[in-house]
């Protein structure tokens, strides 16, 4: 699953992520992170056998976990299926299908916005 983890200022000094990694059978990928002494947010991908238990642990530790449903959306009207965005995506969330339609996978997208700013017809939107 992909989720935003919200850290309150009280939690930023605790080694919660390393406890999570040590105690649960999960793999953990940090896509984005912006944490300062005033708190912050981290966009992560959690997978593995104990993801559910891992998320429960995070919540017990006082981290607000908000799973992401839809991140990226293609405007079918505006998109001309050129593919300018394909090579810019750092996580390969954008691809060509058999018939050369551009497809974006919101499960993989990390919301970096590189495609949205580079789209010639402004056809991709990332919602946060």
């Amino acid at each position: 699953m992909k989720a935003w983890l919200e850290f309150s200022p009280k939690k930023v000094n605790k080694a919660i992520i390393s406890d999570l990694m040590r105690d649960y059978d999960i793999s953990f990928n940090i896509h984005r992170a912006d944490i300062t002494p005033k708190g912050g947010k981290m966009l992560v991908e959690i997978s593995g056998n104990q993801s559910k238990e891992g998320v429960e642990f995070l919540e017990r530790e006082g981290i607000h976990v908000s799973p992401i449903k839809r991140v990226v959306k293609k405007d079918e009207e505006k998109c001309v299926d050129c593919g300018a965005c394909v090579s810019l995506c750092p996580v390969k969330a954008i691809s060509n299908t058999e018939d050369w339609t551009i497809e974006v996978d919101d499960q993989i997208c990390i919301g970096c916005d590189f495609c949205t700013s580079s789209c010639p017809t402004r056809a991709i939107k990332v919602t946060k």
């Binding site: 299926d81 050129c82 593919g83 300018a84 394909v86 090579s87 810019l88 050369w100």
Partner: peptide, 22 residues
């Protein structure tokens, strides 16, 4: 979608729409 340049696999992008061309 991928081309080798100086030993690295580099992703490629078409700027024209092959779908529309078809």
């Amino acid at each position: 979608g991928v081309i080798e340049l100086e030993g690295q696999d580099v992703p490629t992008s078409s700027l024209s729409s092959y779908k529309k061309a078809l």
